[in-house]
Amino acid sequence: MGVLSWIRRHLLAFAALAVLALLLVPNVVVAVFSFNDPVGKFNYNWAKFSTDAWAHPCGSPGICESLGLSLRIGVTASLVATVLGTMVALALGRYQFRGRAATNLLIFVPMATPEVVMGSSLLTLFLMLGIPSGALAILIAHIMFCVSFVVVAVKARVATLDPRLEEAAADLGATPAQTFLRVTLPLAAPGIAAGALLAFSLSFDDYIITNFNASPSSITFPMFVWGAAQRGVPVQVNVIGTVVFLAALLFVIAGQVLSNRRQRAV
């Protein structure tokens, strides 16, 4: 009776933790199988423990080249998208202008369009313009679908800021440029960082749109994984997946700690 009622009272917590476990199980599996020494070329069943893949993360031909390309595209795309998106978000959050509704629609629609539609439509554009498939086409596509997410992240932050702070800066003699650099930008920084991180992870992870615009000489990491999935996935894929996961987790936790500390200091 006691046990039963205890379980009943904590039913919600159990359900929540079960769902959380479900979300995290694949990550754990990826990490565990990075230590596998599979029989044959498919890394689906546990064979025996090995740290070979960790010792030779580039041991599979092409894997580190594709990783390098994904990192380069991810960094460039997220930088450009963050600049473009932050500008749009500041305009939306801080100025009155005609065409606001149309702007909001143009920001929203790409997020509500299936990737396969965006990828294929870009392909038709590039075909007509004669832009060749490859890294440049991928980069253009990634910037396109990242901008909206940056706008949303930065706008959410800018909306919480008190516009009177900027008025106070102006009142204290700051020029518009000084106000922007010393007040607006530092206050919007957490939103900009969140937007940039989101943009990077979207770009780094994209397969569907990339696939429409890639050439055989521009294999990104997700494309490498996709190709490998047909032939047999090398264990190194799990190693890189695990490292990226842990690095990102560390990054987010560090950001959280930093913002907590800053909040406490204020």
Binding site: L20, L23, L24, V25, P26, N27, V29, V30, F33, N43, Y44, N45, S201, F204, D205, Y207, F221, P222, V225, W226, A229, V233, V237, N238, G241, T242, V244, F245, A247, A248, L249, V252, I253, Q256
Partner: peptide
């Protein structure tokens, strides 16, 4: 953080992990 965390492992790799789990 734990809910967002899976995002940081490639969509493809996590989907492949289900091939391990459901093998």
């Amino acid at each position: 953080i734990l809910v967002i965390a899976p995002f940081f492992t490639s969509f493809l790799i996590r989907t492949l992990a289900w091939r391990n789990i459901l093998s």
